[in-house]
């Protein structure tokens, strides 16, 4: 896995909390950058919900 290569300035400075709700999605809080398969930065967020059932029609969210 390589380091992000795009010009985006990566956010850090703080932990990432992943809340695994019962029968629910992952709620991810904290500054983070989403990388694609190639390791390139796609976008940044501070809070996002990720699918963990495999059935979202808008994966990975």
């Amino acid at each position: 896995m390589k380091e992000p290569q795009t010009g985006l300035t990566l956010k850090g400075e703080g932990g990432l909390t992943i809340i695994v709700g019962t029968n629910d999605s992952y709620e991810i809080k904290g500054p983070f950058t989403i990388l694609n398969d190639a390791g390139d930065a796609v976008f940044q967020a501070e809070e996002e919900w990720f699918c963990r059932c495999g059935h979202s029609s808008n994966k990975p969210f």
Binding site: L10, P31, T33, L35, D37
Partner: peptide, 16 residues
């Protein structure tokens, strides 16, 4: 930096 890499047909790789 915290990163989440979405693996094709696979898991979320989280680092940070």
């Amino acid at each position: 930096h915290n990163t989440i890499q979405v693996d094709e047909d696979g898991p979320l790789y989280v680092r940070g």
